[in-house]
Nucleic acid binder design. Sequence first.
DNA 1: CTAGGATCCTGTCAGC
DNA 2: TGCTGACAGGATCCTA
Length: 282
Amino acid sequence: MPELPEVETVRRGLRGFIVGKSVVKITTLSAKSFVGDDEKVLGRRVIRLGRRGKALIVKLDGGWNLMVHLRMTGQLVYVGNKRFAAGHPTDDFFLEMPGKHTRVIFEFEDDSRLYFNDQRKFGFVKVMDDAGLEKDAFLMKLGPEPWDMESREFFERLGRRKKTSIKAAILDQSVIAGVGNIYADEGLWRAGIFPGRLVKGVTESEVKELLKGVCEVMDKSIESGGSSMKNYVRADGTKGNYLEKFAKVFGREGEKCERCGGIIKKIRVAGRGTHYCPRCQK
DNA sequence: CTAGGATCCTGTCAGC
DNA sequence: TGCTGACAGGATCCTA
């Protein structure tokens, strides 16, 4: 999925278009992509957009909410007088909506629309009242946002996963919220830590660097607009890859490490494709 | 309790 | 060209 920076990009980009508007119609094209009663949402106005970890929370009036989780391939495309798209970057950002991967369509009072697209159908939009949000199992067990945590707490939370790899540990959302496969690799590169190292061998000062690295790379991604349509295309008009803006190892296997000149390798750690520099990550 | 693998689903790509 | 298996920016469920 779209990880924390992508969801934050969705939140920031979308709020200017839908806050203040009422939902007048919902069309569900894939039953498993929409959880709950759409009647609770109809006629309600969007109050604000929030985020916890990788979950987007659309707050509606009357105490109702939509929790959106993009998982691996979710994206949101808004089409009105202007168009905005972010989430999992694909050509659907620019194609006519609804498209092949459109699962849910929200229509607003001004006839603008929000399309929830999701190729693999792992993601969902869930209708929840405020009380339900408060006691939601997924949200309750989420660890702190990266910027809201001292490295000491990060170290202690990692300590609960001593026998697993440091990469598996930081992908665990109860340890730290919002880190996914890309930012795990990028954060570990910045801290100079080999992703397969067991947690028990990682020192507190390394953990401090790791937290700093994760925050830095996420900040950079959010600043550059994450995976939104505006940076899905290169300046020359060819199809691009937003990772070019900040990624040092992800998707760069075979390339030279910019820090030490080593050749970046791709291996499998924690069941996930893992990119690292064998020369400067120990 | 932890750790690791299978699983949900669709699409793409590399290698016969 | 067609087939097959591996893999994919996530999280949960099951087994050991």
